[in-house]
Design a protein around this nucleic acid. Structure first.
Lengths: 199, 199, 199, 199
DNA sequence: GAGTAAGCGAGACGGTACGTCAAGTCTTACA
DNA sequence: TGTAAGACTTGACGTACCGTCTCGCTTACTC
């Protein structure tokens, strides 16, 4: 049921993606070269160019293939607890090798909108959706305000993650950071009225 | 009181920084080359390498020299209003050419910690400090809760800016987003108690 | 009476040789590629490699199959006249597309002795033999000296042809040059004695 | 009196031409690669491309720089003797390494008219001129016929050389070949009249 | 004012990687 | 078994920049 011709070698494909991911971890994208991937993977440069248009796309696919992007989606009775679990999972993965690779991808994406678009579709959007779902659940069960703007909350939560990853205000693995961040996002900055629930 | 030898040419220096900034705007950092800067500025590569260690440092200095990074620090009676003014100013500057250059620099910094460090010291930290000052003022005058964690709020506010700049969740010049973002950061996500101040 | 399996396709063979000859005419051997022949002929590279060991051999066979190398062998009473007829025929064919292809083949042969050997056997030797025959006839009937060294004359005659073809001292289609060349080869360079037959 | 900038390195130039000549001798032009020359000479590919447009031109210059193309121009009382001396010298040089390189050059020239043109100007034409001079001298002093067509004789003499080099009718170092060839060119092929000077 | 010490432009140098082309081999589906 | 299709490794192509290195020339300060 397949056309004629030698079928694509999965062995080559895997070797390329493995090598690409390793090199991305080791060097970052700046010193990530197609030539290097070819050498490390034992394949030919042409084979790489046959299947990927450039380093951005290759790095992207290497990330998707290898990184543990599949942070578990928690689903307990408490939306707040689920938020904490999920975001801390992402923070953990960003703090390690995956984070370095993600940073590379985003970097590549600046001059390669196609790659950034794929990253959005495959990584960012699915996660945002899961976050949205949890928040909506929180709105339904009264954990959150009914007039909460979901997108804005999502953005604020992700924003801190990506900013620590890329701008490095402070380390991603700082103890208690994520917890404190979430708490304050939820509680806001304004003074509590006298009859505050915590009063 | 200066040693012997021909003094450094300010004309060359300016021509280099001008050319660098232009090329950064036009091409992003990926296609930003020392060779290109030399050609555009009419100087010799040697001259560039004499004064800057690499493209990261040059780009950094070109940014600092040209971009209107000096957003005015507002100082009215209302800390909340000042926050809005300041952050909207930054958003505006990020939405234009400066934003593209900043993105380039920050991402280049992923593989060039020295450059990123300079960016922190010269750009990020001063702004964060101004933000902290405003927030502290708000705490003092009762606009904000007394137990507010200032750093966390600063990070949340900047996070959204940088994330829109780098990850491009949504455009930086979307009408009203900054306002909405700030409002929600201040109000939090939890339900308002019955005796809410707005009730 | 043939073994099992699909028989060789003459259609493919012809398409390959046609395409090869066309490409040889168009580009010369330098830019003559097996890949190009496969594309132009609509066959697979595999098929070409199954039947020919390399580009030299293929070009050779394409030449033999298509070029009008079969200059008519004249045979009149006058050996001298026959020589002129034959050599002028070859000159004419060398002056056109065939000449370019022959030049390609011969020069390719510099690094591919097998191909050059085939060219000798299939093209050069038969023609030289015909030339020898004519000259021998001339010796028999008194047109030429009895102690003439035939091989040397053959070589002198061919030499001029190939040299114009390959070194391009002068164009192959220069009017009258072949005639003049033959005449002088026959008459020699020495002064005519007083009782010269023309005296 | 030289412009600014680092002067061209003669060391690099010589290393390149040496390496090129060696590789030409070893492999012929077919397997002669710029990459190989760079490796052998210890220079960078870019340096080669800076000074030579392609392999044809490089091979050409390597030949001119190294080959003993300066066959001595004899000048004795006898033009015939001088012809023999000169042509035998060329034959000797063609029979060795120089010959292989010359063959390569001519080959390259088929698809690179500029290279062939240089070869004409620098090698072929000077030699032809020297041959012409000798022949004219022979005409003047009565060794040759007064109505001898000089160009044709030159061509016939060279033709045999290049043809043996390229077509390989017979080896260039066959004993006595050149002598016999010259003799017959001079004496012609026609029967000697009764009062022939040799009679 | 001669000497000396930088800075400057130009541009050649050894390199690395680029993205492309073709070579020749191999593996499939189909005839 | 032959053929078209097409993926594979290999190796060279010619180009773009890298960062370094002479050069000749231009300013200064210093003796």
């Amino acid at each position: 049921m397949r056309g004629p011709g030698r079928p694509r070698s999965d062995q080559a494909r895997d070797a390329i993606l493995d090598a690409a991911f390793q090199l991305l971890e080791e060097n970052g994208l700046e010193r990530f070269t197609i030539e290097g991937v070819a050498a490390r993977s034992g394949t030919a440069k042409t084979t790489i160019y046959r299947w990927w248009p450039g380093k951005g796309a290759l790095a992207m696919e290497a990330l998707l293939a290898h990184a543990e992007l599949t942070v578990p989606t928690p689903s307990t009775a408490s939306a707040v607890a689920d938020l904490r679990t999920m975001l801390q999972g992402i923070a953990r993965s960003f703090a390690g090798a995956t984070g370095r690779v993600v940073a590379s991808i985003v970097l590549a994406g600046q001059n390669d909108p196609a790659t950034l678009k794929v990253y959005h579709e495959k990584v960012v959007e699915p996660r945002r959706q899961r976050l949205r779902d949890i928040i909506e659940r929180g709105k339904s069960n009264g954990e959150f305000r009914g007039d909460l703007h979901v997108e804005t909350l999502v953005e604020a939560m992700y924003g801190a993650l990506y900013t620590r990853l890329l701008i490095r205000f402070s380390p991603l693995d700082e103890a208690g950071w994520m917890d404190r961040h979430i708490t304050q996002l939820l509680e806001g900055a304004l003074p509590r009225p006298l009859c505050d629930r915590k009063a």
